[in-house]
Write a protein that binds this DNA or RNA. Structure first.
Lengths: 145, 145
DNA sequence: GTAGGCCTTAGAGTCGACTCGAAGTCAAGG
DNA sequence: CCTTGACTTCGAGTCGACTCTAAGGCCTAC
């Protein structure tokens, strides 16, 4: 129970640690993305806990993988609800996991096509002559389905 | 030189083949995303060529991997410009390829964290007791950098 | 000949997630 | 004391990419 009073983490510190702007942090709080309310110091300034920063880091990963704010909010709400909410939290995670896998597959497919085109261009540029695919026609086409 | 007049492809056909709505197809045309203008039949209806459909399929892959409309437009413009523009087209492709790789890395990282959490939850749910991580605290945290 | 269906246009509206601006408060340093 | 700078609130603005609406034209089938 070491209650050493560390330097309080203010919004600028959290901003630096999370990569989220102050504006965004306030916005996230106002959107209910934080399970617990943010404390204030004497001047009314926000003081974040280490746990909140950790959670914000998770949030930002979730965001960057496309989880919507409403989903994150729901998850945050459930975190306040204790053990009974674990099932639903698990569900949300599984669902998002699947979404991320789908995105990965989509990107992989796009990457294949791009690499294909890049290789084609590289070959044409190396061989130095324009033999007909300069219009990027069907020869560069997407594989059907 | 087989110039057999096939059934003209109208917007609904292209919509079905590309998965883009009619609205979106008109929008893309108006945004200059098609290298060549779309022909019209007697009634003023759009008639697409096979090449255009192929190109739209490519477009939609580029879009789904996050290429912006301005970038696609630029590329389309270059396609009208002949062999001289090949270098810049290649550049655009390489640049986008890198962007896609970055996105893949980002998603992979997020996926790792999600899988981590999922596994943690699964273990806790299986063991049946709530021993302290139900608040999703630092024990579920993001690995630093 | 008229109803249905697909098409046309121009332009307005939507959505999510920020992002910014204005006006004000507070503590510390010179 | 006064400035500086980080913070506060609230509300409005932005952005990209659609998405939809309204008003109308043309062709086919009954």
């Amino acid at each position: 129970m070491s209650e050493i009073t560390e330097a309080p983490m203010r919004i600028a510190d959290v901003s630096e640690r999370t990569g989220l702007t102050g504006h965004t942090l306030r916005f996230y709080e106002s959107e209910g993305l934080l399970p617990d309310p943010v404390e204030r110091d004497g001047a009314g300034h926000r003081v974040f806990t280490e746990d909140q920063v950790q959670w914000l880091l998770v949030c930002s990963k979730m965001r960057s993988s496309g989880m919507s704010l409403p989903h994150i909010r729901r998850y945050a709400e459930l975190m306040q609800g204790g053990p009974d909410t674990v099932g639903e939290r698990y569900e949300i995670l599984r669902e998002h996991e699947q979404k991320v896998r789908d995105q990965l597959a989509e990107l992989q497919e796009a990457l294949g096509i791009i690499e294909n085109k890049v290789a084609l261009y590289a070959r044409q540029m190396a061989s130095g002559d324009a033999d007909g695919l300069w219009r990027d026609g069907p020869s560069c086409a997407v594989r059907s389905t």
